[in-house]
Amino acid sequence: MSTTDDELMAALRALWQENDPVPADLAERMVAAVASDDLSREYALLTLVEDATAAVRGDTGTTTLQFSDGRVGVMLHVADAEGGGRRVDGWVDAESPAVVLEQGQKSWTAEPAEHGRFAFDRVPPGLYRLRLTVREDAGERVFSTPRFEI
């Protein structure tokens, strides 16, 4: 840019600052808007459901997790499997063509049966996220859980 261009840009900047200044709280509002944009997914309810019979039956290698965003609910039952892996049995209460279990760059896909049941066999322990496309009256949307450990 030439000196003339620099002067023109400075004059335009001064004009806009005088006639339409940036709101003082714009940065804070934008941070809040971006942070809350994904709230339904990131803050999906995660509940650890304790099985009172596990200690009696000696079945200590199981965990049950529930996720919900108020419209979609998912329940996972995680059990130890042979060879140090895990078996994940799940149920979704909404119509979904596929459920994807993601761990970093790896993923496993399952197709829910008629009543929303799905399963993943021989999954290595680690941090995961469950992602599924849910069919609703208004179309489709993605439901994703926060990360959880199995």
Rank of each mutant, 00 (worst) to 15 (best):
F143A: 00
R87K: 14
I150R: 02
A32S: 08
T47P: 06
A24I: 06
F143H: 02
G70V: 09
Q17T: 04
V34L: 11
H77W: 10
D121Y: 07
E114S: 09
F148P: 00
A10M: 05
G84W: 01
L101N: 02
G104Y: 01
F143Q: 00
T133Q: 03
T109C: 07
L39V: 12
S96D: 07
Y128Q: 02
L12W: 09
R117I: 09
R57P: 07
L39C: 09
A24F: 07
R147A: 13
R71H: 15
D25Q: 06
Y43L: 15
P146S: 11
A79H: 08
D121W: 06
A55R: 15
R131G: 01
H77G: 05
T133E: 14
P21S: 05
V92E: 01
E28W: 05
A11Q: 13
L127Y: 07
A44D: 05
G90W: 07
S107C: 10
F143M: 03
D137F: 10
A138E: 09
F148E: 00
D137C: 06
V22M: 09
R86H: 15
R131S: 05
D25M: 04
A24Q: 10
A44W: 05
S40T: 12
V134K: 00
R29K: 10
T133G: 04
R117Y: 07
D93G: 14
